[in-house]
Measured scan of single mutants.
Amino acid sequence: SEYETMLTEIMSMGYERERVVAALRASYNNPHRAVEYLLTGIPG
């Protein structure tokens, strides 16, 4: 799925699956924002 592709691409940058899933959830599946959250911390 498109979601799995995003997940895999972000994980390939060296992040753990659960952190990527949390970041995508926080960003409403916006991959650019999710990466930003992984770099700066997930808000909330």
Rank of each mutant, 00 (worst) to 15 (best):
A23W: 05
A26G: 04
S12W: 06
A23R: 01
G44K: 11
M13R: 06
G14H: 02
M13E: 02
I10W: 04
V21D: 05
E18M: 08
E36S: 06
I10F: 07
E18T: 08
V21C: 06
L38S: 00
L7V: 15
M11E: 04
N30G: 02
I42T: 09
S27D: 01
M11Y: 03
I10N: 00
P31D: 02
L24G: 00
A34L: 04
M6I: 10
Y3S: 03
V20F: 04
T40K: 12
R25S: 08
Y3E: 04
M11K: 01
A22E: 13
V35W: 06
G41L: 09
A34S: 02
I10H: 01
E4V: 09
E9L: 15
A26Y: 09
M13Y: 07
Y15K: 01
E36V: 10
G44N: 13
I42G: 10
R33I: 15
E9C: 15
V20L: 02
Y15N: 01
G14V: 06
L24C: 06
G14D: 02
L24M: 08
R33M: 15
E18G: 08
L39A: 09
Y15Q: 01
E36N: 06
M11G: 02
R17F: 09
Y28H: 15
S12I: 07
V21W: 04
E4Y: 11
E36R: 08
R17E: 05
M13N: 03
E2C: 13
I42M: 11
G44C: 13
V21F: 04
L24V: 02
A26H: 09
G14L: 05
M6T: 05
E18K: 07
A22T: 06
L38V: 02
T5A: 14
R25L: 12
Y28V: 07
G41C: 08
M6W: 11
V20M: 02
A26M: 10
G41M: 11
V20Y: 04
H32G: 11
A22Q: 11
G14R: 02
R19F: 09
E18D: 12
A23L: 03
E36Q: 12
N30D: 15
E4L: 12
L24E: 00
T5P: 08
V20H: 01
E4C: 14
Y15P: 01
E36T: 07
N29V: 04
I42H: 09
P43Q: 09
G44V: 13
S27Y: 06
A23F: 04
N29D: 07
T40A: 14
E36F: 13
G41W: 12
S12Q: 11
G14E: 02
E16A: 10
I10D: 00
N30E: 08
M6H: 06
V21S: 05
R33W: 11
M11N: 01
V20P: 00
I10V: 03
E2K: 11
E18V: 07
N30T: 05
E2S: 12
A34P: 01
P31R: 10
M11A: 04
A26E: 07
M13S: 03
S1P: 12
Y28W: 09
A34F: 04
S27V: 07
Y15D: 01
P43I: 11
Y37M: 13
R19K: 11
A34N: 01
R19C: 12
S1R: 11
G14S: 02
T5Q: 14
G14A: 02
R33D: 08
A23E: 01
L7Q: 01
E18Q: 09
L7D: 00
R33E: 08
H32I: 15
T5M: 14
H32A: 15
L39N: 10
E16W: 06
A34M: 03
G41H: 11
A34D: 01
R17A: 04
E16H: 06
L7P: 00
L7N: 00
L39H: 07
G44F: 12
V35L: 15
T40G: 11
E4I: 11
Y3Q: 04
E9R: 13
A22D: 09
V35T: 05
L39V: 10
R25E: 10
T40W: 14
T8H: 14
M11H: 02
E2P: 10
Y37V: 05
G14K: 02
M13W: 06
A23I: 03
E16L: 07
E36Y: 14
A23V: 03
R17Q: 06
V20T: 03
Y37I: 11
A34V: 03
A22Y: 05
Y15F: 15
N30L: 04
R17W: 07
V35Y: 07
P31G: 05
R33F: 08
I10E: 00
Y3L: 06
V21T: 06
L24I: 04
N29L: 08
E2T: 11
I10T: 01
E18W: 14
R33A: 10
L24F: 03
L39M: 14
E4A: 08
V35D: 01
T40H: 15
A26R: 07
R25A: 14
Y3G: 02
Y3D: 04
V21I: 14
V35N: 02
M13L: 13
S1M: 13
T5V: 12
V35M: 13
R33K: 15
V21L: 10
P31V: 12
T8Q: 15
G41F: 12
V35A: 05
N29T: 03
R25D: 07
A34C: 04
R33N: 07
M13T: 02
S27T: 10
E9Q: 14
E18I: 07
L38A: 01
L7E: 01
Y28T: 06
G41V: 10
R33C: 11
M13D: 02
L24A: 01
S27G: 07
M11R: 02
V35R: 07
N30Q: 07
M6F: 08
T40F: 14
N30I: 07
T8K: 15
T8L: 15
T5Y: 11
A34R: 01
Y37N: 03
G14Y: 05
N30R: 04
L38M: 04
M13K: 06
L39S: 08
N30W: 04
T8P: 02
Y28Q: 15
G44H: 12
R25V: 08
I42P: 08
L7R: 01
E9S: 12
Y15L: 02
R19P: 05
S12Y: 06
M6K: 03
T5N: 12
A26P: 00
E36I: 11
V20N: 00
R19E: 13
L39E: 11
Y15H: 05
G44D: 13
E4R: 07
T40Y: 15
E36P: 01
T40L: 13
I42K: 08
M11T: 05
L39I: 12
N30P: 01
L38W: 03
V35Q: 05
M6R: 04
N29A: 05
L24Q: 00
E36L: 13
I10G: 01
E36M: 11
S27N: 07
S1D: 13
G41S: 10
G14P: 01
L7G: 00
A23C: 05
M13G: 03
S12N: 13
R25Y: 08
A34W: 03
A23K: 01
I10L: 14
E36H: 13
P43E: 09
H32V: 15
A26D: 05
E2G: 09
P31K: 14
R33L: 15
Y15R: 01
L38D: 00
T5H: 12
E16Q: 08
G44P: 14
A34H: 01
E16Y: 05
S27R: 02
N29H: 06
Y3K: 03
H32S: 14
G41I: 09
A26K: 07
A23D: 00
A34E: 01
E4H: 09
Y15I: 03
G14T: 01
R33Q: 13
G14M: 03
L38E: 00
V21R: 06
E4T: 08
Y28N: 15
A26F: 08
L24P: 00
V21A: 08
L38R: 00
E2M: 11
R17L: 09
E9I: 14
S12T: 07
R17H: 05
E2N: 11
P31C: 11
L7F: 04
R33H: 08
I42W: 11
L24R: 00
A26N: 06
Y3W: 11
E9A: 14
E16G: 07
R25P: 00
T5D: 11
A22F: 05
N29Y: 11
Y28S: 14
T8E: 13
H32T: 14
V21Q: 07
P31H: 08
A22V: 07
G41A: 10
E9Y: 15
L38K: 00
T5I: 13
I42F: 13
Y15M: 02
T8F: 14
P31T: 05
Y28L: 14
E4P: 03
A22P: 01
A22W: 07
I42N: 09
E36W: 13
E9D: 10
Y3V: 05
R19T: 10
P43M: 11
V35K: 09
P31L: 14
S27K: 02
I42S: 09
A22R: 08
E16V: 07
E18S: 10
H32Y: 12
E16F: 06
L24W: 02
Y37H: 05
N30V: 06
A23N: 00
S27W: 05
G41T: 10
N29R: 04
R25N: 09
R19Y: 09
Y15A: 01
L7K: 02
M6V: 07
S1I: 13
S12D: 08
E16M: 06
